[in-house]
């Protein structure tokens, strides 16, 4: 055991340098920051574009066109269409005149020419054929009528292309009249316990209200022109008006409206 064999440095541990790890850590942090800034992990919290729903049916307009305010209330326009379908019937009526031909034929019998008889037979056959066709058409029309009546009673006979407007509209704008819109909006905010109502007077209770709304749909002022005589109903109308101080749509302009609130109608809509 000589000292020369122990010549290695006992403090030599061959340690790695911390600097290398510092550089590695710095690079890792930089990469992480770049990834975060680049939005790699941002996809989860990316905000989806907002979806806006616009209620075109209830858009209040000054001059509503002819149509229906709601798709469900459209069976009325179909009635004229049904009438039109029935209309061709009178046109078919003159055809039975052909039926009369055989009876009329009895009169020209004094001229019994062989060719004329032949043609009379042909005419008779044609008339019979026409009568059959007419009967078949009539049965088809009856069938269509029955089906139409069924659909109307089911309430599903609303065509998709009925214009949006008012039944009595005469303007050109798609939408509902301002008065109807405001009335419907106030009614949606109306609440009254049926137990507080005088059921016997229900049909007669109604109040006329004067309302002024700004073009932004904000209630400026209101006044009950004709009270109903039932204080609870009047109070409920006032509460509904106050709740409706901001409409859900803007109005075409600042408007003064007179709206009639009928208890029976409002209760029916509520149901």
């Amino acid at each position: 055991m000589s000292a020369t064999r122990l010549s290695f440095n006992h403090s030599n541990h061959d340690h790695p340098k911390l600097g290398r790890f510092l550089v590695a850590s710095l690079i890792a942090h930089t990469v992480l920051v770049i990834l975060l800034a680049g939005g790699l992990f941002d996809s989860a919290r990316r905000v989806k574009p907002p979806v806006y729903y616009v209620d075109l049916v209830h858009k209040p307009v000054l001059n509503p066109q002819a149509g229906r305010p709601e798709a469900r209330a459209k069976p009325a326009p179909k009635a004229p269409a049904a009438k039109k379908a029935v209309a061709p019937q009178p046109k078919a009526k003159p055809k039975p005149t052909a039926d009369k031909l055989p009876t009329a034929k009895t009169k020209p019998t004094p001229a019994p020419k062989p060719e004329a008889v032949k043609s009379a037979e042909q005419r008779r056959l044609a008339a019979i054929e026409e009568l059959r066709q007419k009967q078949a058409r009539q049965s088809d029309i009856d069938d269509i009528k029955q089906r139409l009546a069924k659909l109307q009673s089911a309430g599903a006979s609303v065509p998709q292309d009925v214009p949006i407007g008012m039944p009595d509209g005469s303007g050109t704008e798609a939408g509902v009249s301002v008065v109807s819109h405001v009335q419907a909006f106030i009614q949606s905010n109306w609440a009254l316990s049926p137990y507080l109502l005088d059921q016997s007077r229900m049909g007669t209770i109604q109040a006329k209200v004067f309302l002024v709304y700004s073009d932004s749909g904000e209630l400026i002022r209101y006044r009950i022109l004709e009270p109903s005589g039932d204080s609870q109903f009047d109070d409920s109308i006032k509460r509904a008006i106050i709740k409706s101080k901001q409409l859900d749509h803007k109005l075409p302009k600042t408007m003064e409206l007179t709206v009639l609130f009928n208890l029976k109608e409002m209760a029916a809509v509520r149901r």
Binding site: H15, P16, L18, F21, L22, A24, S25, L26, A28, H29
Partner: peptide, 17 residues
């Protein structure tokens, strides 16, 4: 950030040693 960088460098270094 400095603390984080140096900490991770030390953690790696110590793990190695």
């Amino acid at each position: 950030v400095y603390f984080s960088v140096v900490s991770w460098a030390i953690i790696l270094y110590k793990q190695f040693v």
